[in-house]
Design a protein around this nucleic acid. Sequence first.
DNA 1: TCTGGGGTCCTAGGACCC
DNA 2: TCTGGGGTCCTAGGACCC
Length: 420
Amino acid sequence: MTLALVDCDSFYASCERIFRPDLKNKPIVVLSNNDGCVIARSKEAKVLGVGMGAPWFKVKENYIKNGGYVFSSNFPLYGDMSSRVMNILKIVSPGVEIYSIDEAFLNLDTLDKNFNLYKFGCYVKGVIKQWTGVPVRVGIAPTKTLTKIAIYQVKKMEIATKVLQLNTQEEITKALSLTPVHEVWGVGRRLNQHLQNMGIMTALDLAKTDPYYMRQKFSIVLERTIRELCGERCCDIENDRTSKQQIIVSRSFGQRVDDLETLQPFISNFVVRASEKLRHEKQKCSQVSVFVRTSPFNDKKPQHQGFNSFQFYCPTNDTRDILNGAKIALKPIFKSNYSYAKAGILLSSFSNEDMQQAVLFQDPDMPKNNSYLMKYIDAMNDYQTQIYFASQNTSHYSPVRQNMVSPRYTTSWNELPLVN
DNA sequence: TCTGGGGTCCTAGGACCC
DNA sequence: TCTGGGGTCCTAGGACCC
């Protein structure tokens, strides 16, 4: 009974480096939207003391002075590199669960008992590096939570092969004793504080607690974590990805927005994007919510945040319906005299697009949603946006500030890497 | 001056039912 | 003075993840 976790090493920074081989062994950081804060760091950048999530304007000077390189985020590139990695995993592994853009669990239960899993891990690492250039780590263990522990140990102990198998109880116990409790998957800031107060400092301390007691005191989630640390599988591999429960599109603004006439078209852009995702998921939604907020970091200006939802009479994935709902929801929460720093929309209450909810006062043969129209618009916009809705801002997706974006090396004909 | 975006799961509590 | 018991469903909010 064995699982593996394949984890890309400093993923975004590695993607940038693949197309800039001159940056080998150089510090690289990747920034969030608007070049706000640091969301990825190469090993060398960590050495320079750049923290995860650090506001860029605070670390910039020192980092650049020390010879660091910096990129604005380039998600088309990272998304494409990710799917290349995942496609390789689907070839080499009997079962794959894509967990995030840079992580996947492999189900190795079906492999023969005498199969050399450690060698397999090394092979996976090698083939991904050779075919994509992405460096990965592999953790092998009986449960998901333990594969996470294995990955943490690869990082912390700087294991040269980047592959660690936790097989015997001795190996597991040793790894647990060397892992601080806040590094355990599922233990966040709040829980860590409580556990520390109880004298639970390491993953091994946590594994030794009574799961029933901890369930009463905290939650069933923690009970599962404890059992997983003890080798009892509580989280299964999900082979076929379950459909989404909600879709969010939101942005922080590079420039503050303080009037509805400016904000509304950006909200429309978010709605259009979210509706495309919804149709891509083959779902309809019954609710759209809109939120706005001022900057929580600016204590000199008045603060405001608003959230409001609109319910649809029957489920829809027609952009025009959702634009209308979002517009109605935004009105009461928008207040003038505030400088808004972030806004977004959220679609929820999904149902399958094939199911048609009959409506009493509507002719069932005349659906309001014109799904053909949306299909054609999606098809036309697939390659490059050609059709906009009247309420959109067609010149800017959102007020954004990005100064250091790398080319879309793999997803745009005009930006392919050149070989001299 | 400048602080990301997109998700999941669980729980408590209210509304409602018989 | 004294005011049941047991259940379901839904939602908002918290905690956590990458």
